[in-house]
Design a binder for these strands. Structure first.
Length: 543
RNA sequence: GCGCCCGUAGCUCAGUUGGACAGAGCAGCGGUUUCCUAAACCGCAGGCCAGAGGUUCGAAUCCUCUCGGGCGUACCA
């Protein structure tokens, strides 16, 4: 990497001058006058060394190894600006070409097993647009971490029993009666009113099941099983349509069956992590970094969601995952801090669990902005959205914003824009390059044979520098749970390519130059392809 | 009340962890097609970075307060 080249030169020089270590930055320059990279080393180091920044900068520049750079300048209050030699940039491209498909990958993970848990919506209804954000975020994070050398497992956690599921069963029962005996459905208070249960009821009614329609208590199990089975299928279909697949579907009931919950509770008790109050068992969360003490076992002896959640994470640990990332919405803040407190009490390593938190999605239709409620049946289904504007565009919109920002999905805009969409803009760059390679004859399409020193135009050098940043972008996007950085980067690369493409011809009379440009364009296509792949978008050959 | 997140161009959003004159897409206006896909390119216009203080060489970024929006503050999941 070019940045590392600058950094190494700088560190050697700094150490050679006998100065103590300081935290300084080497950054890509934001404007061409500032060269290729700049450092604030002299500004940061001035205090420690006791020399004025500009004077210190001058001493650093004097001591730099000769011939490493085309030019080095001191600017402003004491920045040092580095102008790279063309050869240095060209050789970076050589390295990128050599890395091939593996360019951008790193081995930070060292094969560690990492579980990413996301969506985890209970099977009480189809996925909403909100779940879609989480699905894409989790899926992209998973791919990013794979690129960093982690062994990644995608897991979906769901609850198929309990009060919510009982309500679901009863709601379906009412819808069934509506179909079968033409009685108007009376959806229970807090029940599920959405139209999807009508569809399921209609299917059931036409399938000739032998059910006691008079006595719900006798047919409850039937409706519960059917509701969960069919809705889970819907959810899987919705996810598949977005290109999201899970390695593992984990049912909460397995924890109950194995008695894990009692075991974990006992261990919490042994470690003094719980106390009794008002007939309930409480987690001592506040003393262990949690936001507030919370109930684990209700006064009727039933475990709370929190209790199960802690047991679930102990189970993940037992299954051998070295790290776990849970992707969750911003409404689980207290819960998250309590789970962490619980794991802390049980002595799990602090770095075992991380939460990637995202804000909500609201849907804008015209002037109205609305939040969604699965229960009330008031939501835009993920399925409808994907059918409306396509998986690629949905995925792009979902990760183009940073997770901690609210995402306002303007339906009309997303659709109206669809032809001038950033998602298509990126794909189009890929397509254009594919088209070049369809035309270029085989003599000129062997990148290894090219003389890269012919790439001397400013946009060409700029493109190489952009490509060179790709591994750093991947790394940062993963480590900071910020896939939008990749979306941004890719858009910028596509834009730089389109500009280059319209000004310069790749295929020309000059065979050597053509070869060199093909090599460049090949590397660009490779990075675009990788980026789209990580974002889960298609990389079309033709549009 | 308290906790977390957000407030940047008409709209939707970036802003490299404190750096140099604030960026992109869309919308608006004006241009570009003998030539690798015009789903493109070029140009113009658009901002007191919600507001007020503070920290220092330097603040959209850090601290305090105010205003505005979202979420949470359940023996719900």
């Amino acid at each position: 990497m070019l940045e590392n080249f600058v950094r190494h030169s700088l560190v050697e020089t700094w150490n050679g001058l006998g100065f103590p270590e300081v935290e300084a930055e080497v950054q890509p320059a934001t404007r061409p006058e500032h060269g290729d990279f700049s450092t604030n080393l002299a500004l940061v180091g001035a205090k420690q060394v006791g020399i004025h920044p500009r004077e210190l900068a001058a001493r650093i520049v004097d001591a730099l190894p000769g011939g490493n750079f085309a030019n080095v300048e001191i600017a402003g209050p004491g920045f040092i600006n580095f102008f790279l030699r063309e050869g240095e940039i060209q050789s970076a491209l050589r390295g990128i070409l050599r890395a091939g498909d593996r360019f951008g990958e790193a081995d930070i993970g060292g094969g560690k097993s990492l579980q990413i848990e996301f969506v985890s919506s209970n099977p009480t209804g189809p996925l909403t647009v909100g779940h879609g954000r989480q699905a894409v975020l989790g899926d992209v994070l998973a791919t990013l971490y794979s690129a960093l050398g982690y062994e990644v497992t995608r897991e979906y956690y769901f609850n198929d029993e309990g009060r919510q599921i009982d309500l679901l069963a009863e709601s379906l029962y009412e819808r069934y009666l509506e179909q079968k005996v033409l009685k108007k459905a009376e959806i229970p208070v807090d029940g599920y009113a959405g139209p999807y249960l009508i569809d399921i009821a209609r299917d059931l009614a036409s399938e000739n099941h032998e059910i006691d329609v008079i006595d719900f208590s006798k047919s409850k199990d039937f409706f519960r099983t059917e509701a969960v089975r069919r809705i889970t299928k819907m959810i899987k279909d919705d996810l598949a349509q977005l290109g999201v697949k899970f390695n593992n579907w984990f049912s909460e009931s397995t924890l109950h069956e194995r008695g894990e919950i009692d075991k974990v509770l006992d261990r919490l008790r042994e470690r003094g992590g719980v106390y009794e109050k008002d007939g309930a068992v409480w987690l001592r969360a506040e003393d262990n970094g949690g936001i507030k003490d919370s109930v684990l076992i209700r006064n009727d002896k039933r475990a709370t969601y929190l209790m199960v959640d802690i047991a679930y994470h102990i189970d993940k640990y037992r299954r051998g995952f070295e790290r776990v990332i849970d992707v969750q919405g911003a409404d689980h803040q207290v819960e998250q801090s309590c789970v962490k407190a619980g794991l802390r009490i049980l002595g799990l390593p602090e770095e075992f669990l991380d939460y990637a938190v995202h804000q909500f999605v609201s849907i804008k239709q015209g002037k109205q902005t609305a939040r969604m409620s699965t229960r009330a049946g008031r939501f835009i289904s993920l399925r409808a959205l994907v059918e409306w504007i396509g998986p690629d565009v949905v995925r792009y919109f979902m990760i183009a914003r940073k997770p901690e920002s609210h995402l306002e999905f303007d339906l009309e805009l997303a659709r109206a824009q669809s032809l001038e969409n950033p998602a298509y803009y990126i794909q189009y760059a890929h397509t254009r390059i594919a088209s070049i390679f369809r035309r270029g004859d085989s003599q000129t399409t062997e990148p290894e044979k090219s003389d890269l020193s012919l790439l001397r135009e400013p946009p060409e050098l700029d493109l190489i520098k952009r490509l060179d940043r790709f591994p750093a972008v991947i790394k940062k996007a993963a480590l900071e749970f910020a896939p939008h950085l990749l979306a941004d980067y890719t858009l910028g690369l596509a834009s730089a390519f389109h500009t280059y493409y319209s000004k310069y011809r790749v295929l020309g009379e000059d065979v050597a130059l053509t070869r060199a440009r093909l090599a460049l364009v090949y590397a660009i296509q490779n990075v675009l392809h990788r980026s789209l792949e990580i974002m889960g978008m298609s990389a079309p050959e033709e549009m």
